[in-house]
Structure formats: C-alpha cells, structure tokens
Simulated scan of single mutants.
Amino acid sequence: MKYVNADEVFPKELVIEMQKYAQGQIVYISKLEGNHKKWGEKSGNRQYLKQRNQAIQEEFQSGASIVELSDRYFLSVYSIKKIVYTKIQS
C-alpha cells in the first residue's frame, strides 16, 4: 500500500471537509466491494501453488510415495498428505 497525499488526489473542497474529521491523521480508504483480489492472484503465487499441487497429486497417483514427494518438493510429510488427499479446486 502506497501513501498518497490527499491534496494530490481529492478536490480542495473534499480535503477541507475531511480535515474537519481527521486533521493531520493517516486515513485508509478501502477498495470497493468486489474489487479485492484473493491472496496470490496479483503475484502469481496462487497459480504456481495450484500447478505444483496438481503435479504432486499426479506423481502420487503414478506411484510416488509420500516420503519421496516430501523430499522432492521440500515439504513436510503432513503437507504432502494434505495435498494428495485433497481435491484441487478449479
């Protein structure tokens, strides 16, 4: 989140009105409902983890053991179990 000076964004009349309520304070203005992104959507991490988990499931179905997958993907046995026994969401 980037700090922006209100004088640079809002009309002068609105800044004067806001100063009546929050003079000299930092105010957060949230996004409109429906404009929020889920975790990892902007960076691509969500898609990366989905693809990784699908690959883990495919390898498990092809006969790889949970311990092998744990070593290969540097994840705990517990994490691998959660991935292979959970259906991947679309």
Rank of each mutant, 00 (worst) to 15 (best):
F60T: 02
L14W: 07
H36I: 08
V4S: 12
V9Q: 05
I66W: 04
V15T: 09
K37Q: 13
K42H: 10
Y3N: 09
K42R: 10
K82V: 01
A22C: 15
N45Q: 10
Q54M: 14
E58Q: 14
E17K: 15
A55Y: 02
K50L: 14
L69W: 01
M18F: 14
K81V: 02
L75S: 01
S79A: 14
F10R: 07
Q61M: 07
A55V: 06
K82T: 01
S65R: 08
G44F: 09
K50I: 11
V67N: 08
S30E: 14
S70N: 05
I56M: 01
V84Y: 04
V9H: 01
A55G: 07
S43T: 13
Q25F: 13
K2M: 14
N35A: 09
E58S: 11
P11L: 07
N53M: 01
V84G: 07
F10C: 06
L75E: 02
V27L: 12
K37G: 06
S62N: 15
Q19N: 15
Y21F: 15
V9M: 11
Y73M: 05
Y73D: 03
I88N: 04
K87W: 02
A55M: 12
G34P: 08
R72L: 14
R46S: 12
K87Q: 13
E13Q: 12
Q51C: 00
I80P: 01
K20C: 09
S43M: 05
G24K: 12
S43F: 04
K81C: 07
V77W: 08
E33S: 14
E58V: 02
N5Q: 11
V15W: 06
M18S: 04
E33A: 08
F74L: 06
S79T: 07
N35P: 00
V84C: 11
E13V: 09
Y78I: 06
F74S: 07
V9T: 10
K42W: 11
K82P: 02
K87P: 04
K50T: 12
G44P: 08
P11I: 03
V4A: 08
Y73K: 05
Y85Q: 13
I16G: 02
Y73A: 12
N35G: 03
Y3R: 10
Y21N: 03
G63D: 05
F10D: 06
E59F: 04
R46W: 00
K50D: 08
Y3E: 12
F10A: 04
V27I: 15
Y21A: 13
Q61L: 13
S76H: 07
E13K: 13
Y3D: 05
Q89T: 06
I16E: 15
K37E: 14
Y21H: 14
Q54W: 00
L14M: 15
D71V: 08
K81G: 03
V4F: 10
K20A: 09
Q89R: 09
G24P: 05
I29R: 03
E68V: 03
L14Y: 09
G24Q: 07
Y73N: 13
K12R: 11
S62W: 02
K37W: 09
H36K: 12
S76L: 06
K82D: 03
